[in-house]
Amino acid sequence: MINLVRNEMLKLLRKKRLYVIILIIAFLVPLFTYAQFKEIQDQREKMGNQDWRTTLQQEITDTQNRLSSSRIQDEWRKFLKIRLSQQQYYLENDIDPRAPGAPTFMRIFVENSIDLLLPLLVMVIVADLVSSESSGGTIKLLLTRPVKRWRILLSKYLAMLLSISFIVLSVAVLSYGISGVVFGYGGWNMPLLTGFTVSGDELLTENVHIVPQWQYILMEFGLVWYVCMIVGTLTFMLSVLLRSTAAVMGIMLASLIAGAILANMVSSWESAKYFFMVNLNLTNYVSGMATPIEGMSLGFSMSVLAVWGIAGFIIAFVTFSKRDIY
């Protein structure tokens, strides 16, 4: 088994996809670092070199003023209200949620890339894992070996798991390493609040507790990895079902982007919450943001994703072992 996985890993490395992905990340991170840096600078210019409390208070008052305007969408009002109470809570506990530093950048970067960027990168690796063997014809060679089919597929799946871990790790390392040049490498012990529960447009704070930033980041990366695994599994299934890599990519791309769009407009269509792509934003539950659809929670989203993932896994294995190869 180990040799099979090793073989698959070798194939993956030969394709140089992992390097491409690392390159993409290494190119994007400086871009975002610069954007973030500009924002901080801009804020400093506007507000003077002020205490973060003053800045945060100013933001709170601005939000309050927006809320008091009557021409504001209900959706947006809910979002603002929740953010407002959260900021207030941070202020009361004397915690600056945005103290600049490489760990903070990492956190913000990963929170923003969990629903689209990272799944896309995963897709690039996984999409042709099986389909390329079918379209290239190498699948016949692979299956003539005296190894059970499910073991071959499992070795591919394990190789996928390893490379996803690798991608997530390189996101962590690169975003920390590169942004640290600008923001400094400190800030791992900064306290952050988690455990907010959103109910309607109220923010419940009874379970809120403080965790150091390193734990917070580790938790978020765990969730990111989970999301990537689910997206990976679904792509894997499509890769088994379809021969054309382009079709796999197209379907995954369409559903991921549809998810990003849907999340902004499904609030009144309740059953949309059973789609896997509206549930990708798991980190929002840790940081306490408003959910796209009422009644979603971390447990709910993780279960929905798990169901999709398991279904994808089963379909992939059943089809692969039963299919006629010719």
Binding site: Q215, L218, Y226, L298
Partner: peptide, 12 residues
Amino acid sequence: ATVLWLFGLGWT
């Protein structure tokens, strides 16, 4: 990395 992320997930 897998072990680390699994640990993070469990912790979450």
